[in-house]
Simulated scan of single mutants.
Amino acid sequence: MTLEQILTEIRSYVGVLELAPQSGSEHPEISWGDFFFYYAPDGEVPRNRQPYATIVTKDYPDDVESRLDAPDRWRLNIHVGSQLFTDLLGYPPESIEESTVDFSETDTFLPHPLYGAYGWVAVVNPGSRTTTRALAALHEAHLADQRRVERRQARGGAGPRPRLMSPGDHAARAVAANTAQRDENHNDHCREPGHARVREFS
């Protein structure tokens, strides 16, 4: 499955917000070309929580084992929680043995190289072996994020519980912080394909 096909699927989710900083923007260069997904039906980048899924297209300084700097390689990261992590990989997050994992393997469910212990899975270049279950996991992650948001709203806007760091966290936080401070006259826009809200920066 191509990256564009994955994006098309995610963009069909009701209430999804896609944060996609582009090359040359004022956002941190490390985030250019990557994608961060939230449940945010108001179209505003959340300031108090991290994305439920990311797509990264390059190595990060502390995350190089997937070899994403090689041509035509990218990685889908999904926060699935302990139970689904176990179903997909055959062992729970707390049982990861990094010495036995080839984090560069393609079309295979892997623990995220940095955040697997927190219930994040990763797939480098999803293909025929992983696409169906990866799409199902993505949709469930979106619904789980929606449930979290709705629970907080039901509590009357109470602040969120502290959350563990997530894949792309340093980039996502920096981008979200910059977004919160932007003047509305900057050259950013929001478009809505179906029910999805997509924010792109250029």
Rank of each mutant, 00 (worst) to 15 (best):
Y118L: 09
V101D: 04
Y91P: 00
V101C: 02
F85Q: 07
L76M: 13
F109Y: 10
S66A: 15
T130G: 08
R73D: 14
S104L: 01
G127T: 07
L76C: 07
Q83K: 08
G90N: 05
L84V: 04
S82P: 00
L84T: 11
G127E: 12
R47W: 10
T130Q: 09
T54K: 04
W120M: 07
N48P: 00
Y118D: 14
P71Q: 12
D59V: 01
H112W: 11
F85R: 06
Y52C: 06
E65R: 14
P51M: 08
A137W: 10
T100Q: 11
D102K: 02
S82L: 03
D102Q: 06
R67V: 02
D87H: 02
Y91F: 09
A70F: 12
L135F: 14
S66R: 15
Q83M: 02
S128N: 12
E94H: 08
N48F: 10
H79S: 12
T106R: 11
T130V: 06
R133W: 10
P92G: 09
A122N: 08
T108L: 04
P111S: 04
K58Q: 14
V121W: 09
R49A: 03
A134Q: 09
E98F: 02
N48R: 09
E140M: 04
P93R: 03
A53Y: 13
T106Q: 14
P71G: 10
T131A: 15
V56Q: 15
V80M: 11
T108G: 01
V121Q: 12
L114E: 12
V56E: 15
A141I: 02
